[in-house]
Each structure stands twice: as C-alpha cells, then as structure tokens.
C-alpha cells in the first residue's frame, strides 16, 4: 500500500518546527509502524536527507521508549497498543497520516518526534520507591500479601512510563502516571509505612515539573497502552489529601490533586 505522512520535523529545542510531507510506497501490511518509518528513513538517507528521529528500543511494547501522536492519538488508533506493536494492517492504501511528538510543557522536544521525559523519572525519585537498602530485607514470605492486593498493585505496576497519558490529556497532566507509580506501592504492606509521605512528595514533584491539573476528562486512561484505570487517580487523591491532613503543619502549595 501507499501512504502519505505529514511528519513534524524540528532540528532541536530552539529551532522552529514544521510538518513535512513524505510519500511512502511499498508498505506491507505485516510491517510494524516503526518498520514503515525505518523504510522511510532508509530512503531519506540514501537521498542524502536527515532521517526522522523517533525514540524506540525493545519494539515489544514493554520498554516504553516509543510513542508519538498518529492522527492526534498517542500510539495511534489501536487500543492498548504501543506504536511499536501497531501494524500497518490497521491502515489502508492511500491513507494520509499526521505524526507529531507528545506535546507537553514538561516534555521539551529534543528533535522531530523525540521528547525529553526526564520529568517522569524525577517524580519517581521524589517518592516512588520503598526505602529499603540492599541486604536489609526480611524473609520474603514473612509478610503474606492477599492475592487481590498483589493483583491490584500489579495492575498499577504495569505502567511502562511512555507518557501517552500526558500527551492525551488536554491539560498535559501526569495524574495517571503518577498515580500508577504511587498505587503500585501504596496498596502493598511493604509500601504502607511511607504511603502518605510518598503521595505528598510525588504530587508536589509533579506540580514542580510543570504538568497540568486533572479535570477528569479520562483521555489518559483511554490512551494508556497498559490499561491503567482512572480509579488509580482517585486513590492518589485520597492518599494525598489524607497525607495533607496528617501533616503538621499542612503542606502549602500542594494543589496538584484532582
């Protein structure tokens, strides 16, 4: 099949960007979306042009490196699928697509479709951990964890930190991401001692990074390739608010809850 792509090209953070139109011929329906871009890039390079920069690594939908907007949707049209796992059979001959980077103030553009998502790492660093030094762990089976609790933790831990939730949100909020990282630990007995402090610190960091606020559109959960539920955000708000009540004096400036 033949496709027309309108790709956002931007040399670096300081340079202005614009859409450039490319024709891609000989697209097989068995190709992944990124393999289709590989074919375009091979062609561009042999013609002496700069290839389109895009982030990718495992191409199995688990590392979270890839991600850009296809026709305004993070990772493209297929639900619960990263763009590396999206295959060209989802499109038809003659389609014209628009490819642009995840856009958010907290995700500065590096080049073309590549953005800097370091802000997400810093949210984790603010509290998305259990403070246990190597070697000081108790015997693993000394704390039974009900299966339902372990499963709930897991549903949140499935987050791959791709940033699609931020890109999908009209406010560019990182609520779904932050709540997933937080609830992964907050529901477990191992995460219990630091639960409220974790909630406060992660939410404050989220605000500091310049992510927007939540106005409950729910676009994030729709876009999430791993199906993180909106209820995680509700649980985060709960932990954050309880945390604020418990703190003396109450934290000021923490207005990031929903």
């Amino acid at each position: 099949m033949k496709l027309t792509l309108n790709v956002w090209r931007q040399k670096d953070r300081r340079s202005p960007g614009s859409f450039v139109k490319y024709a891609v011929n000989d697209v097989s329906e068995h190709m992944s979306f990124l393999e289709m871009l590989d074919v375009l890039n091979e062609k561009l390079q042999t013609e002496g042009q700069d290839p389109v920069a895009f982030e990718h690594d495992c191409r199995e939908g688990i590392c979270g490196s890839c991600g850009f907007m296809v026709d305004g949707r993070p990772h493209g049209p297929m639900p619960r699928t990263t763009v590396c796992q999206l295959h060209m059979r989802s499109f038809k001959d003659g389609d014209e697509l628009v490819l642009e980077p995840f856009r958010a103030a907290a995700f500065p553009i590096i080049r073309d479709l590549v953005v800097d998502r370091g802000s997400l790492d810093r949210i984790v660093g603010a509290g998305g951990f259990v403070s246990v030094n190597t070697g000081s762990a108790p015997e693993a089976n000394s704390t039974p964890v009900p299966k339902s609790v372990a499963d709930k933790s897991f549903d949140n831990a499935a987050c791959i930190q791709c940033g699609a939730c931020v890109a999908a949100c009209p406010n560019a909020a990182a609520m779904l991401f932050t709540s997933a990282k937080m609830q992964h630990l907050n529901v477990l007995p191992q995460g219990e001692p630091e639960k409220y402090e974790r909630a406060t610190n992660m939410v404050l960091q989220m605000d500091k990074e310049g992510f927007g606020h939540c106005t409950w559109h729910g676009e994030c959960a729709e876009a999430c390739p791993k199906g993180i539920p909106l209820s995680s955000i509700a649980a985060m708000n709960m932990d954050f608010n309880v945390g604020n009540l418990l703190r003396t004096p109450p934290t000021s400036g923490g207005d990031g809850g929903g």
Binding site: V130, P144, P146
Partner: peptide
C-alpha cells in the same frame, strides 16, 4: 534466595497464592 527477599521488600508484585504467599 536473597534476591527474592530484596525484591519483595522493594514492592515487586510477584505472583501469589490465595493464602498470600509467593
């Protein structure tokens, strides 16, 4: 054996039986 202890303490959600054990 130490690895499993460490990972569980960090909050790694390993599969569990209904009794709550690994």
């Amino acid at each position: 054996v130490n690895i499993i202890d460490q990972a569980v303490a960090q909050g790694v959600p390993f599969a569990r039986e209904y009794g709550g054990l690994l």
